[in-house]
Simulated assay, not measured.
Amino acid sequence: MKIDVWWDLIEQARGAVGDRADDRDSPDDPLVAVLTDLLSELEAAEIIAFEQLLIRVCDSAYLRPLWNAAQLIEGGCGDDGFMDFRGGLALLGRTAFTRAVADPDSLAELPVVVRMGCEGKGWIGCEGMSYAPREAYERVQGETDSFDAVMEATVPGMERPDRPTGENWDVDDAEETRRRLPRLAALFLGQGN
């Protein structure tokens, strides 16, 4: 599967849920279910290829500045939370994802992030994104053992980062965070914190 096809599947799912694609709320977020349905229309090998690209896409966002942005947005973000954040960020589409990887402060332009900062509602992190390919595979094949076997055989051979890259800082240092993420800090730290 080519990366453009991968992103096209994300965009198809986003198009199917309309306005809900950009400003989602848990637990009634329809996007993962729609994506799973789309993946279920593929051949088993294509679903595996989607999963492999999902890993690569999420790995490309394994960046300390983006993690710090996620921590600010979500009020804390551990290892699993950052994995979910990157999967949910991919669901926001290629443009938003690419911009956030290049400039984490660009997240302040997303409607869901604005709402999270102003109203405390909305979400980006999406654990369900991690399970969509496997669930689609099970629908197509009637089992997941072969999916698991392929992934167990291929993932160790993938070149994957063992830690986030990029410059780090203490996100609890409000002054430093305002300097590095000024638009996000304005949303989440306000003027006095």
Rank of each mutant, 00 (worst) to 15 (best):
F147N: 06
A33P: 00
A45N: 06
A102H: 00
D29A: 05
A33Q: 10
A13V: 03
W123N: 12
A132F: 11
P65H: 07
R160V: 07
V5D: 14
D103G: 02
A16T: 09
F82Y: 09
I55L: 05
L54G: 15
D79W: 15
G88W: 04
L63W: 08
L35H: 08
L53E: 11
Q141A: 15
L63K: 14
I3T: 14
L38F: 12
D29P: 10
D145A: 15
L187F: 13
E74L: 02
A33T: 00
Q12W: 11
V140G: 10
L9R: 13
V113D: 00
S130M: 04
G78K: 13
G81L: 02
I73P: 00
E46Q: 14
G192T: 15
R183M: 05
E135F: 08
T98E: 14
G190H: 11
D22N: 08
A33V: 05
D105I: 00
A102R: 07
V112F: 09
G81H: 01
L187C: 09
R94N: 01
A100H: 02
S26Y: 14
L38H: 15
E143Q: 15
W67P: 03
W6V: 04
P156I: 11
V101G: 00
L92D: 02
Y62E: 01
D173N: 15
A100G: 04
L181I: 09
M129N: 01
L92Y: 07
S106G: 07
Y137N: 14
G18V: 08
S40C: 06
G78T: 11
E51F: 11
V34T: 10
E138V: 15
G122Q: 07
A149F: 04
A61D: 03
R56S: 05
G120L: 06
E159T: 11
M83K: 12
G128D: 13
L187A: 06
M83N: 14
L89P: 07
P111D: 11
R24C: 03
L66Q: 05
S26E: 05
V171L: 02
A149P: 10
M116G: 03
I48N: 05
F147Q: 05
R86C: 08
G166C: 01
Y62S: 01
D28G: 00
D8R: 10
D84W: 10
E176W: 06
P156E: 10
P30L: 03
E167Q: 15
L39F: 06
R183G: 00
P133L: 08
M1D: 12
R160M: 15
C77E: 09
F85N: 05
G18Y: 01
V101Q: 00
W7N: 02
